[in-house]
Amino acid sequence: MKKIIALILTTLAIATLFTGCGKKNQTDLEYVKEKGTLIVGITDFEPMDYKKGSEWIGFDADLAKKFGKSLGVKVEFTEINWDNKVMELDGKQIDCVWNGMTLTDEVKNAMSTSEAYCNNSQVIVIKKGAKISDTAKEGDDFKGYKFAVEKGSAGKDMAEKYGYEYTEVDSQAKALMEVNAGTANCAIIDSLMAAAMVGEGTSYSNLKYTVSLNEELYGVGFRKNSDLTAKLNEFFKTAKEDGTMQAIAEQYKVQAALIK
């Protein structure tokens, strides 16, 4: 009998250990402020979040640090298993996902998402001085033009969608080389890459990028019903107005994808 009672008591003790200090009626903002840290779930993803020495930098990382400062909390980055991002949020292992996350329906259903801050669209890259309008995107405009696209990429999907004549190459970088060498007239790559590698001050200063063929919007995810989402939208607004966002974007060469 004594042993049974001991058993029940132990079970209860373990149960209270789990439930003990979960506070109800606390908003996410209050929760983050009380513990003094904003934990940002990321993966290693240049140029958004990546490591320089032991520090996480990148367009997303730097903006997140600024956001943390505006809240008056420390920002901690933790690498997560991307497949588990929703569990990580809901289990309070992290407070937000800020990692060049595409705002798919799936993401929008499972999280409270911020307004999009980047549009990592597929863009057309062409030699400067080409006789093609910067807004042209229909297949007819490009009669006789050869495209280079990365194997199996979103760029290839676009080439098919618009009916371009294309060849598949190993990588986006290879596609640019083809245009530069004249073996292709155009390439389709994503705008983050284009901003970093094409135009003045890059290795392909004789190339330019033109029209966006699709939309791939990046946003930040919070727990459902979090009041941090509104806070971040406010922060984005001021960061756009005072030029902070543009400056950081240029530092990491993602300005082409920035939503103004």
Partner: peptide
């Protein structure tokens, strides 16, 4: 692993493991 790591936070609203690598 999933249950032990995520369950306390998901079900009891109390992530007992803390954040980061150590947790």
């Amino acid at each position: 692993l999933l249950i032990i790591y995520y369950f306390p936070g998901l079900v009891f609203q109390n992530n007992i493991w803390g954040s980061g690598e150590n947790g």
